[in-house]
Design a binder for these strands. Structure first.
Lengths: 211, 211
DNA sequence: ACCTGAACACCGTTCAAGT
DNA sequence: ACCTGAACACCGTTCAAGT
């Protein structure tokens, strides 16, 4: 048996690195939320002195941006060149949703606080542009249409992640009196798919009248 | 000329009240953002001791919720019973957008942090439910459809308020090389209206196939 | 009833000093 | 080059004491 060094002086097995700091921050965020992340707690979780972090990262905001970028990089989707664009956009959206569900606290934060979370070189944006192009969206309209799709997807996901979607869809229609109460946990999958189908149908009809 | 009392002991003309605290908080939020709001600064702006606030308000979170509720109460929209539901939903959305533009920092915060920001008795929700009912949405689907409309509107507004919409819609399509850069400030009005039109069209076609 | 000063347990970050 | 302790300028909130 080795003797454990006294608490607080235990040596790190791994040297402090930028990537290691982001990974530890992500663990804390997944567990307790972005607002509970503290440079001091982050350092403690790495067995480091709080001030040591500042040799690898300029400040807390950079940590949050770094974590968001790291997670964004993990996004993967398969490209189905031959499938209809409706199917492809559905797949893209659900793949993105899967990532959002893996790190809900971080993603909810990123959607609302980091306007540059989705970048032009990101696979999400590249795929989206390719799909809309394949669907026949004119180049002149493509940025606006892509922006609208992004906004709708992140908007519905935000509402889902923070519970608003669930609350709204359990409200009974206020005009009638004899309805039963909605089930305690209404189907969020359903509302997400509904939103997706609705904008896809809307885009379909826009493309039909254009061409 | 009256002699001003020395700095820091100037007497309040108005006694401290819950509503007065919310109003002062809103002024600070409009000016500097939610994250800059501090119980201590809030007290200073009211010429009060920081601790005096706690006799009218339980804590900072209650202040934020109170401010959000106060602003939410200000929402007004006219009811055009006779207009087609497409027109009515457009008007409801733009009225809501007007309110969001009046207090962008607070609304962006509320959308992402307060799942219960839109409540069942709020005029926004009541109007939305009435319009969808008039449009012929079956009662059984109404909560889900209303939730989807809420999520899309708040989602697009969030993206607009935090600048993401503008950034996304200025990205040039990544596949082509010879495009000119998008104009520095692309038309957000346009993207908002585009999103609105797209979900309205999507809903239209869903209602058509239902009936 | 309403207000207040002191205090507690935290923050992020700077800086001079150590190895 | 990397780490660290002390310190600074803040936070939200509790509590005992004042009027």
């Amino acid at each position: 048996m080795e003797k454990k060094p006294p608490r607080g002086t235990r040596k790190r097995e791994v040297p402090l690195t930028e990537a290691g700091i982001y990974a530890a921050a992500l663990r804390l965020i997944d567990a307790d939320g972005v607002e509970a992340l503290t440079m001091r707690k982050l350092a403690t979780s790495l067995d480091a002195n709080p001030m040591s972090l500042y040799h690898h990262v300029p400040n807390k905001d950079a940590v949050l941006r770094g974590v968001a970028r790291m997670v964004g990089t993990q996004f993967r989707t398969v490209t189905l060149e031959d499938a209809p664009w409706q199917e492809r956009i559905r797949l893209l959206a659900t793949d993105f949703r899967t990532l959002a569900h893996r790190h809900p606290k971080l993603m909810a934060y990123s959607f609302s606080h980091q306007a540059d979370f989705i970048q032009p070189e990101d696979p999400f944006w590249v795929s989206l542009a390719a799909i809309l192009d394949a669907a026949g969206v004119p180049h002149s309209e493509l940025p606006q249409i892509a922006a609208l799709v992004c906004a709708v997807i992140t908007g519905v996901l935000t509402a889902e992640l923070n519970g608003a979607l669930n609350q709204w869809s359990s409200l009974k229609p206020p005009t009638v009196g004899e309805d039963v109460l909605a089930p305690p946990d209404s189907d969020e999958n359903g509302v997400f798919r509904l939103a997706l189908d609705t904008i896809i149908t809307g885009l379909e009809s826009r493309l039909a009248t254009d061409g």
